[in-house]
Every structure is written in C-alpha cells, then in structure tokens.
C-alpha cells in the first residue's frame, strides 16, 4: 500500500528538490521548507504513543505554492506546526530557509492562519489585522491594513469586534492578519473551512491573485481537492495514520487560473485522480 515517499517526490516535478538529494549542481531554486525523514509521535501517557507522521519527506521551493491534501487526522496540521517550530520532530530534520523553523518566526517573516482563527476578542477587526506589526515592534502601516480589509471583503466591518462576526468572517480576518507583514513563508491551515462555497471560491481567487503578485512560499492545508488544484503548484496527498506522502501531483496549468478553469477537462481529470487517491484511503480505514 505504501509507495515509496521519496520516489513520488522525485517524480513530483520541476520545482521540487528531492529529499536527500545532494547539493544542487546547477543553481536550482532555493529550498524554502524541507522536512527530511520526519517522524512525529505524541506521548499519550501510560507509555502509549501515537505516531502522527512517519518517515515524512517534503520539500517546498522558494516561491512555490504547495497544498497538503489528506483525510482528517492524517497529520496535516502537525506538518504545519513542525514548520512553524511550535512542535519539535521526534526524529528527522525540519528546516526553513536552511535554519531552525523558529528563526523565521523570531524575525517576523512568517505568516500563519491556523484552523482556529485566534482573534483577540477585545480588539476590532482593524486592530486584529494590525497585531503582527505591533508584535514586530513596527509602526502600523494602516494603508496596508485597510488594503487587506478590502481584499478579504470586510469593508464596513473595520470597527467590529470578533464576536459580531460570522465564522467565515473571522477566518478572513485571520488570513488578512497572516498576510499583513508580507511574510516570506505563508502557512494556511484549512483557512477557508468555515466559508460557504461561493465566498470560498472568491477567497480562493483573491489568494491566487495575492500569490501571483508576490510569490510567497506557501504551504496550504485543505481537504478541498478543487481548492488545492486551483491554487497549488504541487499537491501532496497524505495517507492516513501515520501520515506519509502517498502521492505528489504537479499542477502545471498556466496562471492566472480563473474560476472557469475548474470546468476544463484537464482540471477535472486532476481533481478526479486526487479524489480517487483520497478515497483509497477512506476505504482502507
């Protein structure tokens, strides 16, 4: 059942640097995120351990958009937490820009939107989005804040407090907050989960547009196959418990990808293929 993770990664395409490959002979795109032979197991007490990730390999090139796709509980969020440095791998190596993951966070160059929106309940939408400026001890660029409020469609809600917002609106605030410092690396954990289908597609479009402007290295966790294919350069499909790389799909459809691309035969074929791969996993469970 388990294909070799390393093989799939190597077949995975242009921008991917194969895990464990020797230093580039030609100047390949710099590797922004690297997880090498990572195993992550959690201590559940009473000498029970739960292995969330096993022998996991992933490499994201600078400026690349990679989507992680997999059944829930397969370790997608764990991968993201390892890349933020919030979690330490049990074994293996996690590098961001060739350094320990926490370094990027300390230098305020990491943008993250977790599954939980984690907004400050006493702050307005505007203040919540400005928070990263304050934590970086930089003067708040209000023009940038307001631009992002426009981008995520929250004009008119600048002064609203989180409890006055719907779940989807809170998530959009969290996305704006993740983007506000123009980070070098962007990590998004099911950021559109609470959105209705229409808003979700619109936000997908906005994210694609922002990404095409800046080419931020992005790792997106999702269980929406279409979203993954629409946005990503590569889609990594994970197996369930413990999480491994089942398949890496390169998506080389031209950008900008508009909504109508989702109806093209090529797009549907990729989506169907990936959906089948996810289904295999469900049947196995």
């Amino acid at each position: 059942m388990t294909e070799s993770a390393t093989d799939t990664i190597q077949s995975g395409g242009s921008a991917a640097t194969a895990a464990g490959s020797t230093a580039a002979v030609r100047p390949a795109p710099a590797e922004a995120i690297a997880l090498r032979n990572v195993t992550m197991s959690f201590d559940l007490g009473r000498s029970k351990r739960m292995t969330a990730l096993e022998d996991f390999n992933l490499s994201v090139a600078e400026g690349e958009f990679v989507a992680l796709l997999g059944p829930s509980g397969c370790g997608k969020s764990t991968v993201l937490r390892l890349v933020t440095g919030l979690e330490q791998a049990t074994s293996g190596e996690v590098l961001v820009e060739d350094k320990a993951p926490a370094d990027l966070a300390k230098s305020h160059r990491l943008g993250v939107a977790f599954q939980e929106h984690a907004l400050l309940p006493w702050s307005s939408v505007r203040e919540n989005i400005a928070l990263p400026f304050r934590l970086a001890r930089r003067a708040v660029d209000w023009q940038r804040v307001d631009e992002l409020i426009r981008l995520v469609g929250l004009v008119g809600f600048e002064k609203a407090r989180p409890r006055q917002l719907s779940g989807g609106m809170k998530q959009r605030v969290a996305i704006a907050r993740a983007l506000v410092l123009s980070p070098d690396v962007l990590l998004l954990d099911e950021p559109f989960g609470a959105l209705d289908a229409v808003t979700r597609r619109r936000m997908n479009g906005e994210l694609a547009r922002i990404w095409e402007e800046q080419h931020i290295t992005t790792l997106l966790v999702t269980h929406d196959v279409e979203e993954a294919v629409l946005l990503a350069d590569r889609v990594v499909v994970l197996t369930g418990r413990p999480g491994r790389v089942r398949h890496v799909q390169t998506v080389d459809m031209p950008r900008p990808r508009h909504a109508d691309i989702t109806r093209s035969a090529e797009f549907r074929a990729v989506v169907d293929h990936l959906t089948d791969l996810l289904d295999v996993d469900r049947k196995a469970e």
């Binding site: 933020t84 440095g85 984690a118 400050l120 928070l131 990263p132 934590l135 001890r137």
Partner: peptide, 22 residues
C-alpha cells in the same frame, strides 16, 4: 487560548508583549 498563544509565538512576540497584549 492555546491557539492565541501559538499565534503570538509564530508572530515572534516578545515575552512582555505576550503578557501585555494577550
């Protein structure tokens, strides 16, 4: 909440800032 504390870490907050702002 743990998610907020994580967020502050990820945004490189100093300890005094986490105390004061969270």
């Amino acid at each position: 909440p743990a998610s907020s504390r994580d967020l502050f870490v990820v945004f490189g907050s100093s300890r005094p800032a986490s105390l004061w702002r969270l």
